[in-house]
Simulated scan of single mutants.
Amino acid sequence: MAVGRPREFDPAQVEDVAMRLFWERGFDGVSISDVTAATGVNRRSIYAEFESKENLFDRALQRYLAGPSAYTVEALTRSTARAVAEAMVHGAADTVSGDVHGCLTVGEAPGLAEFRDATVHRLAERFEAAVDDGELSGVDTLLLARWIAAVCQGIAIQARSGASRDDLHAIADLALAGWPAAASE
């Protein structure tokens, strides 16, 4: 049995570096050469592990979703629709105003439009459950979900433009002032 040459790098470390590069510069602003320069891993090894820039981006995106953007999944577990919305917009403000400003998912990389649409539909399903429970009434749950997503994306763009963390949280609070009245009101 032939023994292959041992891997000379940690793919998780490359994913982490690539995540930060894509987060800072966007998909089109990062080349495999940028990743090799930042990691010290040669092109051949990167292509052997990831096969393409698109696959590397996908794995970096999965790392982002499990790490800095995990607030999205956590938000959906909140007990009320308003608490979901609050966790989304304030989670976005915290994430996009950290070490790297902006959001990895606000861009034009392959699959991001579908990812954003899926997130909107998960939010809409959660808001539909709030309608079914009597918490919300008279709302278009898909439109409400798109509004929260648009606020989160706008917060990311404002962060990239230099808005402070405090300003981003103030934007989140101002947006939430437009939240629909409770069904019992």
Rank of each mutant, 00 (worst) to 15 (best):
R43D: 00
L21Y: 00
L56D: 15
A18I: 02
T36V: 02
R5G: 08
E128Q: 06
I32T: 07
E185R: 07
R116P: 14
A145S: 03
R126S: 13
Q158C: 13
I148T: 04
G162L: 10
Q62T: 05
A93R: 00
V120A: 11
R82P: 02
A81N: 15
E86D: 15
S97N: 09
L123R: 01
P110Y: 02
H101P: 09
I155S: 04
A93F: 13
P180W: 04
I157V: 04
L142S: 01
D132T: 12
D132L: 09
Q158V: 12
S52C: 09
E49V: 06
L136Y: 10
G178L: 07
A124Y: 12
E114Q: 04
R20Q: 15
M1A: 11
A124V: 15
L136C: 02
D58W: 12
R59H: 01
I32W: 14
D34Y: 15
P110T: 08
Y71A: 03
L174C: 06
L104P: 15
L21W: 03
T72H: 05
V96Q: 02
A18S: 00
L142K: 07
R160T: 04
A93K: 07
F127H: 13
D28Y: 08
V17S: 11
R146Y: 03
E54T: 10
L76D: 08
A85M: 01
A177K: 15
R78W: 14
M19F: 07
R59Y: 05
A129D: 08
V139W: 02
E114V: 05
Q13A: 15
A37G: 10
E135C: 11
A113I: 04
S33I: 08
R78F: 04
S161G: 05
S164K: 06
A177N: 11
A60L: 14
D94R: 13
L104R: 05
